[in-house]
Design a binder for these strands. Structure first.
Length: 554
RNA sequence: GGUGGGUUCGUAUAACGGUUAGUACUCGAGAUUUUCAUUCUCGCAAUAGGAGUUCGAUUCUCCUACCCACUACCA
């Protein structure tokens, strides 16, 4: 009898969700959807000390942005469900709200001899660890040491009874067997065996805050929520024997979920796993969304950096998985069909920012000019540009689309389609004596923003001298007159051949004239085709810019 | 230190035990273009090391090295 596929993503709200966490959630989601099952979100907030306000909301918003929508655990408004209903039968989905259910399971284990009460204080245990460390050893709370510690195994029954009643700092610990070979199977890593003798007696429940630790809460909830597969990070592999033992202790072996442990995301360079610091150091986000911590420290996000969620998800899916052929572009729905745990890579995947950028470029190219125009408008407004018609913006987008990886690039690539170049001298005009100051009476495109401060002007010409040469000025003037009097349509199709014909018929050098013209027109030494620029900015602006350039650069 | 996991070009990865070890990103060269970008073509570049099993090993086994995780009343 096949049981229904039910998987969960169980984050701890201790901060923003790392992109590795998003990948874990994604693989869970893909697996669930492929098997026609349920994807559940459960909040594991059993550590009250590490709780970070806003983290839970961030996690859900991030997954939502990625298109990873839970079936259960979070409602349509993005709130973690607190009361059971037909759609959310296992509510609440926040472990802090489930605290009342765990104690009896912990006590069941004690009663059946699988666990015991421990009365050692944190200070006592810290002292033990320090003591052991001093002689080059590691203190482990296990079969070797537990009889020498203060617990219900070592203390007389009446003393145990007294401590249980009179103190509130005791815990329940799992009594890890001294010598049992735990045989485990991992969907990605295959068969693994560990001897329980090397493991320690993990705390399962804490009297102090009446909350379980991860291990107990996790096993109990996975059981109660009828989880069929547990897909989680590699950092949990060492706890798998404990979890197997717990299922055995509870007598839930027949419904125990199958496990799959995902490898970690590694730094692009150097050693170790990907951390927030790497992003800061190497200049890329490690979080899906921007995050500002309590100290006001900002971490950038893929969303705010201009990545499309489809690109981010596609890139993430391929960090540790591939379909087995050469295809690399998959929508999330296509991933659902193609995904398989069998093809998940065992080794850690090094994150590559260049590839992430490439993915975004590919997705940008797949989008329609219309859609991109919608996205471009707020970007332009952020740069103080408005008042252009949609028709104009659409033409710009169509023209610069091939040169962009991000919507932001539409602006960066050709700001001169929206503003007039002003400050050539900033870029090293030396020849021809002192540069004349800007003409305050110069007519400018009323739609355009004028940059008075050269430092903020977005033009980047580096080779002004190279193109703006005496011998090129005269031909340029001729071209200006030609355009002034051009009677054909102001379109690339019409202007381009006309310009070419005019220039070659006069025996001028195409390259020299065009580059010189571009400099005057855009303030930049490279960029879009001249005919395209003229057709967009129009005759008046063209004439105005050339006149200004002649005055400033002559 | 202990336990577990891992190791193919710089990166992500492909390869029933049999291939000139493939693909993508990056990088380099050339072509195209009025410049830049795009596009196209070509190129650089890898099985960690050592044993063993086998006619034959990237693939299976063992050893070594290196990397990672865990070793909390954190998840």
């Amino acid at each position: 009898m096949e049981r229904r596929t039910r998987v969960r993503f169980a984050p701890s709200p201790t901060g923003p969700l790392h992109m590795g966490g998003v990948r874990t959630a994604l693989y869970n989601y893909l697996y669930a959807k492929q098997h026609g099952g349920d994807f559940i979100i459960r909040i594991e907030d059993t550590d009250s000390h590490r709780f970070v306000p806003g983290a839970e909301k961030y996690i859900i918003e991030a997954l939502n942005w990625c298109g990873i929508i839970p079936d259960e655990g979070v409602d349509a408004d993005g709130n973690v469900v607190e009361t059971p209903s037909e759609k959310h039968p296992h509510a609440p989905y926040r472990q802090s709200e489930r605290r009342s259910i765990y104690r009896k399971y912990a006590e069941q284990l004690v009663n059946e001899g699988w666990a015991y009460y421990a009365f050692d204080s944190s200070e006592e245990l810290d002292a033990k660890r320090a003591e052991a460390e001093a002689v080059g050893e590691t203190f482990i709370y296990n079969h070797r040491t537990r009889l020498g510690l203060r617990n219900s195994l070592s203390l007389p029954a009446d003393e145990v009874k007294r401590l249980l009643e009179e103190t509130t700092t005791w815990t329940v610990r799992f009594k890890m067997p001294e010598n049992t070979v735990v045989k485990m199977d991992d969907l990605i890593r295959g068969h693994i065996e560990v001897n329980s003798g090397t493991l320690d007696d993990k705390v399962l429940w804490k009297r102090a805050d009446e909350l379980p630790t991860y291990h107990l809460a996790n096993i109990v909830d996975d059981h109660l929520m009828e989880i069929s597969e547990v897909i989680r990070g590699e950092e949990w592999l060492p706890s798998l024997p404990l979890h197997y033992m717990l299922y055995k202790a509870f007598g839930w072996e027949d419904t125990m979920p199958r496990f799959a442990h995902l490898s970690l995301l590694l730094k692009p360079d150097g050693k170790g796993k990907l951390s927030k610091r790497d992003g800061d150091r190497l200049g890329f986000p490690v979080f899906p969304l921007r995050w500002v911590n309590a100290e006001g420290e900002v971490s950038r996000g893929y969303r705010e950096d201009g990545y499309f969620p489809e690109a981010f998800v596609n890139m993430l899916a391929f960090l540790g998985w591939n379909p087995g052929d050469d295809r690399e572009l998959f929508t999330i729905d296509e991933l659902v069909d193609a995904f398989s745990l069998e093809r998940v890579i065992k080794s850690g995947a090094r994150f590559n920012a260049e590839k992430a950028k490439w993915y975004n470029k590919e997705y940008l190219r797949m989008k329609s000019v219309d859609e991109l125009t919608d996205l471009f408008i707020p970007v332009l407004e952020a740069h103080g540009i408005k008042g252009f018609t949609r028709d104009y913006l659409t033409k710009v987008v169509a023209l610069v689309k091939e040169r962009a990886s991000f919507v932001e690039d539409f602006w960066t690539v050709a700001p001169y389609l929206f503003i007039s170049p002003e400050q050539y001298e900033k870029f090293g005009v030396k020849a021809g004596g002192p540069v004349k100051p800007a003409d305050p009476n110069r007519p400018v495109d009323p739609r355009a923003k004028v940059y008075d401060d050269a430092a903020t002007a977005p033009f980047l010409a580096k080779d002004v001298d190279k193109f703006w040469k005496e011998e090129n000025i005269a031909p340029v003037k001729e071209v200006v007159e030609f355009v002034k009097g051009y009677s054909g349509e102001f379109s690339v199709e019409s202007l381009e051949p006309a310009l070419e014909e005019f220039i070659s018929s006069r025996g001028m050098a195409m390259g020299k004239v065009m580059n010189c013209l571009r400099l005057a027109l855009t303030g930049a030494s490279s960029g879009l085709g001249i005919a395209a620029i003229i057709s967009l900015i129009g005759r008046d602006e063209f004439v105005s810019r050339l006149g200004f350039a002649m005055q400033r650069l002559a």
